Amino acid sequence: MLPEPYDLLPTTARQSHTIAAGDVLFRQGARTLGLYVLITGRVHLERVGPNGERLIIHRATSGTSFAEASVFSERYHCDAIVMDAGELVRIDKSAVLAAFANPDFARAYGRHAAQQVQAHRQIMGIVGIRRAEDRVMAGIVAGLLDGTVVDFAARLQLTHEATYRALRALVEAGRVTNPSRGTYRLA
């Protein structure tokens, strides 16, 4: 089952794909075909920086969509690289554009986009916190520690070492509990 609003599109607009780690879904500059909903797995959207370094601009996880801007563009603006194997659904660009004539789809798409903007702003606010311990605490309060500590660190734009040190300090201060390996909760 696809999340709203994509569940409102005809099944003919959807193509299911099995993906493997290392697969390239699209490259920057390639003609856009549509957007994607990741059922399982993990995909990074990346750009090449001025010195040739890879910059991760988005981490798509199970149950999320990505490349939504491609619906309004002729070319992809980044690369999509599969990090963890899984399943995804590619949704045809023309079907999405045609669906905007349906007010229910248009409202649901707008709501979805607004929620993504809010989530992005929340993460940017947290990433702006200078002290690692405070940033980690803010991330936990926001519910961002929903996977591995390494993934959590990446979302917070911290090294995993700094994140583990901050978690240890928060546990020692009694602000966070560590009931089992890799599990942290507010005290």
Rank of each mutant, 00 (worst) to 15 (best):
I140L: 12
V141K: 15
A166T: 05
M124E: 15
D23I: 12
M137L: 15
F152I: 00
Q116P: 07
E87T: 14
A154I: 11
T12E: 14
A30T: 11
Q15M: 12
A132F: 00
R181A: 02
V37W: 12
G139A: 11
P3W: 10
R42A: 08
I57W: 07
V136K: 01
A119W: 06
R135Y: 00
G29Q: 02
E74W: 10
L8H: 08
L55E: 04
Y109Q: 05
R168T: 09
I57S: 03
A98L: 09
E172I: 13
I140R: 03
D23M: 13
L25T: 04
G110F: 13
E74A: 14
C78P: 06
H77M: 14
G143P: 01
D92I: 08
E4S: 15
Q28R: 13
S70M: 02
H77A: 14
L156V: 05
A21N: 08
A98I: 02
Q116I: 15
A21G: 12
I81G: 02
T159P: 03
E87Y: 07
G147M: 03
A98Y: 11
V149G: 06
A187C: 05
G174E: 03
T32I: 05
G29I: 00
R181I: 08
A80R: 07
G63N: 03
S16V: 12
T177N: 09
T183D: 09
P50G: 14
Q15Y: 11
G147Q: 06
V117A: 05
D23V: 14
T11D: 15
T11V: 13
N178T: 05
Q116C: 11
T163F: 09
A95F: 06
